[in-house]
Design a binder for these strands. Structure first.
Lengths: 222, 222
DNA sequence: TTTATTTTTTAGATTTGTCTAAATTTTATT
DNA sequence: AATAAAATTTAGACAAATCTAAAAAATAAA
């Protein structure tokens, strides 16, 4: 059996999901803009998605995915992010060059394939951009995982992993009282050398270099 | 940029390549049969492939791929077989369940992806069915690799690998004078228990069980 | 070598996804 | 509230890939 929905339909579902996460409800123009297509084409597709019972839609009013549509969208997002993780972690791609390839891979239909891939990758919780990966039931941890360079300022987070496992970096982190589980927030980012000033509760601020920041991963709820 | 040719076109190229390997020249009905489609649809596509300069075709005469068409077909076969290898070796799929999934994966367009995958897999020479994998220039070793159960009768071949690495099988093979590099041929296959009678030059015939045969891989030129 | 059979092609229709241009509805502005 | 502007939908067209039914060409059989 081929795919349940065409690539095109899947792209619409994904775009609508994305937009309704941001705005609650979605408009025709939004989708046209997101998918680089024409509003008329969007309307055409909305009718099809409604007929397939994936979308709540009354013409001229806004629209949003129903439960089934959301479910399908989450599976596509899951595939996209797992493939991105694979490309970066296993095939040594840069995190900035994987999106386009994952746009194609996300439409491969086999559920067994994606569950095996998930297992092969060790059930990662976040993709290389820090976005959460839904599990095979479409649930996701609300936790984002990023390195310290990408942690928003004043966002409390918990250290969840160290990239470089060398004794040198562990010594440095130890000295600054940073370990797995430490709760901290970024107070300042210096554009000059990308160094970062951190604050850990009940301690005075510490500064770390870009090189170190890149290797410290933290998670936080959004 | 999207794919250079549609999935459908790629499937035609692959089918025609396959058929012309067997019969030299290809007919409309052959292709229709191979792709489970109608002769009229094949004719339609032949015109398009000819217009794209991938096919030598005069109506009512047979047809075959030109150099460019062959090149494209080989790249698709390369992708198909590398993905099959990945599915079996990395994701623990059975060799009998990977074909359908690879039919989808083979249409992913990124050349960089497939070259990285090739590297990640260690530049395998054969897919899980023993079919050769073309390299990134479309060249392939004419050598097929199969286990002893699948070696054609009276085909001289050379032992190229042992699946199970246990001391027990190595002891058994050693006793029967079978090692990496040994040249042998299958003289008889017994349907009753799938045991196999082998002949090594200057030695009397030996019989091995199905279990052993499955774990001895050989290569031969076709 | 006619005739019959099979193969292949053409003609015209269908489906999916897209588009442009025009019409309609909603929203914003005076 | 009337009008202007923006958003959305409809109507009709097009390209790709497929199909059926009929016509044309090639092959096989009498």
């Amino acid at each position: 059996m081929g795919p349940k929905y065409s690539s095109s339909r899947e792209n619409y579902l994904k775009a609508i999901f994305h937009l309704q996460e941001i705005h609650g409800t979605v408009t025709t123009n939004d989708v046209a803009n997101e998918l680089q297509t024409r509003p008329a084409s969007v309307t055409d597709m909305l009718k099809k998605l409604k007929a397939q019972k994936l979308l709540l839609y009354e013409k001229y009013k806004g629209f949003k995915l129903n439960t089934e549509g959301r479910k399908v969208a989450l599976q596509i997002i899951r595939k996209h992010r797992l493939w991105e993780y694979f490309l970066v972690e296993k095939l040594r791609f840069g995190w900035d060059e994987v999106h386009e390839i994952a746009e194609e891979l996300e439409h491969i239909s086999s559920k067994k394939l994606i569950d095996r891939l998930d297992e092969f990758l060790g059930f990662p919780k976040s993709d290389p951009h820090g976005d959460p990966i839904p599990d095979s039931q479409g649930r996701w941890t609300l936790t984002r995982q990023v390195d310290l360079l990408n942690l928003p300022i004043n966002q409390m987070a918990e250290v969840s992993g160290i990239g470089d496992q060398s004794a040198e970096i562990l010594e440095l982190l130890n000295h600054k009282h940073i370990a797995l589980g430490t709760r901290l927030e970024v107070k300042k980012k210096f554009a000059f050398d990308n160094s970062i000033e951190l604050k850990i509760k009940n301690q005075s601020p510490v500064t770390i270099s870009e090189h170190v920041a890149k290797n410290v991963f933290v998670k936080y709820d959004e």
